[in-house]
Design a protein around this nucleic acid. Structure first.
Lengths: 338, 338
DNA sequence: CTGAAAGCGCTTACAG
DNA sequence: CTGAAAGCGCTTACAG
């Protein structure tokens, strides 16, 4: 049998409640008994039962992480594992545990959330996807359970979230290209209904506008998926009507597809920028410049903002913006021939 | 306040113990009361408190997953996330929860294990690294806590583990190359002290032996790390004395490095095989043939074997071998010029 | 400063 | 077949 608080109490010749207070760091315990209890704890190698503690405290010190398992790039993009390490760094620092569940779709997500919250297993929930009109968010609101979303949700009222500044990220990329002399810059994006897509496209347009560069309709293509195929098709479409000097994309996979076209057509002078800075980027020919979104920080701050909320600490803001940075590689290293 | 078993009892006009029995599926409850209780549960939308249950049952239905955070290829290799999804598929099917912790080194690993087990948070532990003379394994043995290791440990006595058959995996690769006409096959491996390394090297040697091909000392190079640099150096060393017609490696990163040399020296006729089939493999030039280790299955069976143990089910064996398969790509597609 | 008691929300022998 | 009671291992008002 494992040693309990009663064993320690007996050993130290005090009441269990006193042991509990020593452990909890209660201030009103004499140094003498504190010491005696500590000795007993060490002698018996006592470790409090976390479950009993949770029951008495009505708190498990556990965060529930809901992951999508059908993501196109769950394995190709280190995004998820980076988020997970980021979360764990902060959580572990604060003595919180993390549970995770992979769910295939919104229904399953909701099922896990109901399970986690209804059975009081977790103190708070971390969501990694936010759909438009997200039922999980609605539900968590309804039952008033603490949660945080990685990725800005449609409606940010009363919800905690962390995200990159997608507008600024793309704005910076386009501005950078303009400074390098580019004027005709094409854009290949993913599903246009995503917030992320809107923000990035806005950033693209705004940067061009500010610098007085042209925004031509057929320089902008948005596709249904973040896949290589989509990138390939998009690049083909663009080249039908135009020959840009640079192409920006909203995902490395799109950029890979675009790059394939450029290679096939031997268009060596067109610059190309990816997004997410996946490990694959540096292995492209030419190696691909890409925007690093610092996914680990997204996780870190998600955990931080949620735990602060759980501990009723004052929140300066209901969200946190993680900076992005462009990793420059060969694909933006080309001499402008225009 | 959340609804408890007492509320349900009151609503159904029975004792809490009866409600508990209905939930637990006890056979000796009349259909009539069972129905009444079920109605009350539905009406009040009752969900048992998992923590209270755990305390009463002395079991949390939770598995603790210990992950290394300093792994060279934590982000480049989808190994870990695949393991995690594999674990979750089986665990979720069986109603188990999963906690994870990233640890920087053996000491931290041990700390988390002590925490998880000592505080009774988890019913069993899943380890993803086994060192020679692993203190974590020793400790878990000492306290007699259920655990499973992904990757065959040094001493398999009395421990649960899952792994690929590394001997056979490499044996098959080399045999395959021999059938394609190769006779002079080089080997680039990682740290030789790893079980995995020994097994793969043995598989290489055995296959050559069986087929009567040559095993030359300086065709085999083992490096300290699974990195691109190491692969690069190793390939250089090999080419100093020999010109093999094919090269096998024990990791894709090693193969990438080797491939770099081959490209630089324009040795287009040398076949190359990677290991782990990372997403990067298909993006190489030429695309890299690689051994898929089915990491998701490793996770799945790790969870399965551990949960079976936890539920005192009969175990046919204390380990499970997950098959590997060679994914053929351009790098083994070359015409033999020898 | 410390202890006895009640309570967290379940489960499960025990009794009927 | 069902209920009253004790127990899982903690915490925390309450009293002194």
């Amino acid at each position: 049998m494992a040693v309990t608080i009663r064993d320690v109490a007996k050993e130290a010749k005090v009441a269990p409640s006193t042991v509990s207070r020593v452990i909890g760091g209660s201030p009103k315990i004499s140094d003498e008994t504190k010491e005696r209890v500590m000795e007993a704890i060490k002698k018996l190698n006592y470790q409090p039962n976390a479950i009993a503690r949770s029951l008495a405290n009505n708190s498990t010190h556990t965060l529930g992480l809901i992951l999508p398992s059908e993501e196109e790039d769950l394995f190709k993009n280190p995004f998820f594992i980076q988020i997970m390490t980021g979360i764990s760094v902060y959580a572990q620092k604060k003595g919180y545990y993390i549970m995770y569940a992979f769910s295939k779709n919104e229904n399953e997500e909701l099922k896990f959330i109901k399970n986690y919250t209804g059975s009081k297993l977790v103190d708070g929930v971390i969501l990694l996807t936010s759909r438009t009109k997200d039922r999980c968010i609605e539900y968590l609101h309804e039952i008033n359970y603490p949660f945080v979303i990685v990725g800005r949700p449609e409606n940010t009222e009363n919800v905690l979230w962390v995200d990159n500044d997608n507008f600024q990220a793309m704005y910076k990329v386009v501005s950078y290209l303009i400074t390098k002399g580019h004027r005709k810059i094409a854009y290949i994006g993913g599903p246009e209904e995503l917030n992320m897509s809107k923000d990035r496209l806005d950033g693209y347009k705004r940067a061009l506008q500010i610098h007085g560069a042209c925004i031509k309709e057929n320089l902008v293509i948005q596709k249904k998926d973040f896949t290589e195929e989509c990138g390939y098709e998009a690049m083909k479409e663009i080249l039908k009507h135009n020959t840009p000097s640079a192409v920006v994309t909203t995902d490395d996979l799109l950029a890979f597809g675009a790059n394939k076209v450029l290679r096939e057509m031997k268009l060596k002078d067109i610059s190309l920028v990816g997004f997410n800075n996946t490990p694959l980027a540096e292995y492209q020919y030419p190696s691909l410049s890409s925007v690093d979104i610092n996914a680990n920080k997204l996780g870190y701050y998600a955990a931080k903002i949620l735990i602060k909320k759980l501990e009723n600490k004052e929140l300066i803001s209901n969200h946190y913006i993680v900076e992005t940075n462009l990793v420059e590689r060969e694909s933006t290293d080309k001499v402008l021939s225009i």
